Computed example of a mutant assay.
Amino acid sequence: MSTDETFFQEIGGHETFRRLVDNFYRGVADDPVLKPMYPEEDLGPAAERLTLFLEQYWGGPGTYSEQRGHPRLRMRHMPFKVNPDARDRWLKHMREAVEELGLPPLQEETLWSYLERAAFAMVNTFEE
């Protein structure tokens, strides 16, 4: 990796993030706790938002902010009951999606470490 290359570029850019998100939402589609948190009938709009957010976070295009403004992740997730069970389900599906990418160990750990921290930060209730 050159010193000017972003993590977004290093792991394969848009195609890698698209695969990650598509793999993740395949799991969410059948999850009885997570699926109801997505208001659209089709998970496509949510997948697009997550793809754009992750790409921007990792040094890709700033399309997410151009279209939606500041990410404000905690605020955007407040309408939903994100308890430890929901977090763990999210992490399960995301872990499977990350593993399907087949990234080198350092890149996988870099990506996973962020996703895990983000999931824990989104918990907004401890109620069942």
Rank of each mutant, 00 (worst) to 15 (best):
M1L: 13
M1A: 13
M1G: 14
T6M: 08
T6Q: 03
T6E: 03
F7Y: 11
F8R: 09
Q9A: 13
E10M: 11
I11C: 05
G12A: 10
G12H: 06
G13C: 12
G13Q: 10
F17I: 06
R18T: 15
R18E: 15
R19W: 11
R19E: 14
R19N: 10
L20W: 04
V21H: 03
D22K: 14
D22V: 12
N23G: 11
F24R: 06
Y25Q: 06
R26Q: 06
V28P: 00
A29E: 14
D30A: 14
D30G: 15
D31C: 08
D31A: 10
V33C: 04
L34A: 07
P36M: 14
P36S: 13
M37F: 09
M37N: 03
M37G: 03
P39W: 08
L43Y: 06
L43E: 02
G44L: 12
G44W: 09
G44K: 14
G44C: 05
P45S: 01
P45C: 00
P45Q: 01
P45T: 02
A47M: 14
E48P: 00
L50Q: 14
L54H: 08
L54C: 08
E55S: 10
Y57N: 03
Y57S: 04
G59Q: 02
G62A: 04
Y64C: 07
Y64P: 03
S65R: 14
Q67K: 15
R68A: 09
H70D: 08
P71Y: 10
R76D: 03
R76L: 07
H77P: 01
M78Y: 02
P79C: 01
P79R: 01
F80P: 02
V82E: 07
N83M: 02
P84S: 04
D85R: 15
D85G: 07
R87K: 15
R87F: 00
R87T: 00
D88T: 03
W90R: 00
K92L: 14
H93Y: 11
H93R: 12
M94Q: 02
M94Y: 06
R95A: 09
R95V: 06
E96S: 12
E96M: 08
E96K: 15
V98W: 05
V98Y: 05
V98N: 04
V98M: 10
P104F: 06
P104Q: 02
P105F: 12
Q107F: 09
Q107R: 09
E108D: 12
E108Q: 14
E108Y: 10
E109K: 13
T110Q: 12
S113N: 12
Y114T: 07
Y114F: 13
L115K: 02
E116S: 05
R117Q: 14
R117M: 13
A118T: 08
A119D: 02
A121H: 13
A121F: 04
M122N: 03
V123K: 07
V123L: 05
N124V: 00
N124L: 00
N124R: 01
T125W: 01
T125R: 01
F126C: 10
E128A: 15
E128H: 13
